[in-house]
Design a protein around this nucleic acid. Structure first.
Lengths: 230, 230
DNA sequence: CGTTGTGAAATTCTTCACAGCG
DNA sequence: CGCTGTGAAGAATTTCACAACG
């Protein structure tokens, strides 16, 4: 397990990097992490803020400001050690924990997510997948067997799941969401095309392809219709 | 600070608001659209900014400010006509056009997206799905047949696709992205876990489940570990 | 009356410019 | 000398408070 105390100069002001990172920066840190991982695979040892920024699609200023929220892990005049920076960003994001993910809904999307290799690579482990359809329950997806959604609560607790991914129809999403929360899960990623209501303390994020396409449509329309000049 | 001047008073029913809408507002307008559609299905005629905001998970102030970018389509003291507002937001977002979507990659995710019913409901039509694997080419997904990725360009042009959804491995994403752009597509939604470089004028959006989970992990870690145990 | 629409304030985010350090 | 880290400036966004209006 990685520890933060290898840093020679301690963080001034107290015991830990408990400082909060702006949401916009957190979102981008995950991108830097991926870029760093790619560089690592290519055998690159050092990287400058300029080239890492370009690989991440952001400006160098933004990158350096974002990294400043994590700590001072670069060397002036040289750049950043790829592996060292990678490790510290991962630590700041909480990727040293083991996150156990349950996927609720074994339809096309749920199965696609369960088989998606990107999870395991960075501390996420899919520990269960559920469906309400008895035709699907018991079938194999990847190296998991589909559990009956009726047993949601006991299976969540037995597997120790602390994150849930909802890949199910809008009509049942809120109900399942409530049950997942009642079972103790406090981090939820929803693919259901509906706004979910969650109590305070529960973290919910939403991924929605219809929304994304509509945003694209807006920009495409503006580009096509040069109505801006009046 | 001379920006583009717009007409002082937007006339309802006339030429649409050519003014540009802030990106953050555009993203939320799609959510209001969905909430309004749900209300319509429930037979609700009128809605106040307060209840629509709650259904959308935003504050009433934010909602009203967002709607003000679209136009003045409410009645003071009463609220908004659901159908009327719905139609005007859709128009502002460019959802009156017919958008033809091509899905590139017929793996688990690509097939899940092709079968996802949410597209057709709002002006999006999936007109083609591609894969490079000859074992998959020719098979049926929904009511489409998988085309050979080798024929990307001619099929895109024949079907008139003006949007592309990339559901393929990181390794080939940039190459396919370049080809799709060369074929004339200027709006791309990528599910590939990689940063894609696109020329100016091309609109790219990214959906990334690994990123979303990592953001959740950050917040979950903070909630669990308020005072860092060092 | 009750609710919208909107200037203005408050907050957050991005960019700039350069000091500081290897 | 070159690149990082950061305070300060500049933009963008959100929130507030209330005038306008049916």
């Amino acid at each position: 397990m990685t520890s933060l105390e290898s840093s020679p100069h301690a963080v001034p002001g107290g015991a830990g990097p408990a400082k909060q990172i702006p949401p916009a920066a957190v979102a981008r840190l995950t991108i830097y992490l991926r870029a760093l991982t790619a560089l690592l695979a290519e055998g690159v040892d050092r990287v400058s803020s300029e080239s890492l920024a370009e690989a991440s699609g952001v400006s160098p200023s933004t990158l350096r400001k974002d990294l400043s929220h994590v700590g001072s892990y670069g060397t002036r005049g040289v750049g950043y050690d790829v592996q060292y920076l990678n490790r510290h960003i991962a630590a700041a994001l909480g990727l040293t924990h083991d996150w156990k993910v349950a996927i609720v809904g074994a339809g096309n999307l749920g199965r696609a997510l369960a088989r998606y290799g990107g999870f395991e690579s960075r501390g996420f482990e899919v520990v269960a997948i559920f469906d309400a359809d008895q035709m699907v329950v018991g079938s194999e997806v990847g190296w998991l067997r589909v559990s009956d959604a009726a047993n949601l609560e006991p299976v969540l607790q037995r597997t120790g799941a602390n994150m849930a991914v909802l890949a199910l129809p809008a009509a049942v999403a809120q109900d399942v969401c409530d049950r997942v929360i009642a079972a103790g899960v406090r981090s939820i990623l929803s693919f259901a095309p509906v706004v979910l209501q969650v109590p305070p303390g529960v973290n919910l994020r939403k991924v929605d392809m219809a929304t994304e396409l509509q945003i694209l449509a807006y920009h495409a329309q503006r580009a096509q219709d040069p109505a801006g000049t009046d």
